[in-house]
Computed example of a mutant assay.
Amino acid sequence: MRFPLRLSLARVAIAIVLPLAALSSAWLAAPGAAHAQQMPSGAKQPGDFPRVKLTAGMFVIDAAVAANDPDREQGLMYRSQLASNEGMLFVFNENAVHCFWMKNTLIPLSIAFMRADGTVTDIDEMQAETTDNHCPRNNGVYALEMSKGWFTSKGIKPGMKIQGLPAPQ
């Protein structure tokens, strides 16, 4: 009589443990899966962008440069992190109002809009993975994206200048 009982207990244990294991695996995978997005083929890897060293007051910024349409369209999309003083500089060929959004951008960012002489005109905070428009009130030729809160934490405000900007083409 013991054998059937053991077999029944084993079956009960398997019937309980396997679904729980599958459930916990799905639960553990879900948080990463919700935020993981594959970089599409043809997209530039972060290290493939040209880079420039900028200064904002006493702070040195390591900025990837997006100076053509495909690079500006990709921007920081699909990135999951930035180093503490890392950002992306957008260089435009015309002095205009250039708006941004955060579609497929996985990390919250701050953006500073600048005139041709590097003067910051506007700073905005942007939430990850949203399609809200972020437009400056003033024309400019540069925009610099950094981790959310970077400009505030460094005391960078409109009217200050960013140095080391490459010339628009």
Rank of each mutant, 00 (worst) to 15 (best):
Met1Asn: 09
Arg2Phe: 09
Pro4Val: 13
Leu5Asp: 04
Leu5Tyr: 07
Arg6Pro: 08
Leu7Tyr: 01
Ser8Cys: 15
Leu9Val: 15
Leu9Tyr: 14
Ala13Arg: 15
Ile14Tyr: 09
Val17Cys: 10
Val17Tyr: 15
Leu18Arg: 03
Pro19Leu: 12
Ala22Asp: 11
Ala22His: 15
Ala22Pro: 08
Leu23Glu: 01
Ala26Trp: 11
Trp27Lys: 07
Ala29Thr: 04
Ala29Arg: 05
Ala30Phe: 08
Gly32Pro: 00
Ala33Tyr: 02
Ala34Thr: 03
His35Tyr: 06
Ala36Gln: 13
Gln37Thr: 00
Gln37Ser: 10
Gln38Arg: 12
Gln38Leu: 06
Pro40Arg: 10
Ser41Trp: 00
Ser41Ala: 07
Gly42Tyr: 10
Ala43Tyr: 13
Ala43Cys: 02
Ala43Thr: 01
Pro46Phe: 00
Gly47Val: 03
Gly47Trp: 07
Phe49Asn: 00
Pro50Met: 06
Val52Gln: 00
Leu54Pro: 09
Leu54Cys: 14
Thr55Arg: 14
Ala56Ile: 07
Phe59Val: 12
Phe59Ala: 11
Val60Ser: 12
Val60Phe: 11
Asp62Ser: 14
Asp62Arg: 04
Ala63Ser: 00
Ala66Gly: 06
Asp69Arg: 15
Pro70Gln: 11
Gln74Val: 09
Leu76Val: 06
Leu76Cys: 11
Leu76His: 07
Ser80Cys: 03
Gln81Arg: 09
Gln81Leu: 05
Leu82Tyr: 03
Ala83Val: 00
Ala83Arg: 06
Glu86Asn: 15
Gly87Tyr: 09
Met88Phe: 04
Met88Ala: 13
Met88Asp: 13
Val91Trp: 09
Val91Cys: 06
Val91Met: 13
Phe92Arg: 01
Glu94Ile: 06
Asn95Gly: 04
Cys99Leu: 08
Trp101Gln: 04
Trp101Met: 11
Met102Leu: 03
Leu106Tyr: 01
Leu106Cys: 02
Ile107Asn: 05
Ile107His: 01
Ile107Met: 06
Pro108Leu: 04
Leu109Lys: 07
Leu109Asp: 04
Ser110Asn: 03
Ser110Arg: 04
Ile111Thr: 05
Ile111Asn: 02
Ala112Ser: 02
Ala112Asp: 07
Arg115Pro: 02
Arg115Tyr: 03
Ala116Asn: 13
Asp117Val: 06
Gly118Val: 02
Thr119Phe: 04
Val120Ile: 13
Asp122Val: 14
Ile123Ser: 15
Glu125Lys: 12
Gln127Val: 14
Gln127His: 05
Glu129Trp: 04
Cys135Gly: 13
Cys135Trp: 01
Pro136Met: 01
Pro136Ile: 01
Asn138Phe: 13
Asn139Ser: 14
Asn139Pro: 10
Gly140His: 08
Val141Arg: 10
Val141Asn: 03
Val141Ala: 00
Ala143His: 00
Met146Pro: 07
Met146Ser: 04
Lys148Leu: 10
Lys148Ile: 08
Trp150Arg: 11
Thr152Glu: 05
Thr152Lys: 06
Gly155Gln: 09
Ile156Asp: 09
Lys157Met: 03
Lys157Val: 09
Pro158Cys: 07
Pro158Ser: 14
Pro158Phe: 13
Gly159Asp: 12
Lys161Gly: 08
Ile162Tyr: 01
Gln163Glu: 08
Gly164Cys: 10
Gly164Phe: 12
Leu165Met: 12
Pro166Phe: 02
Ala167His: 07
Gln169Leu: 09
Gln169Thr: 02
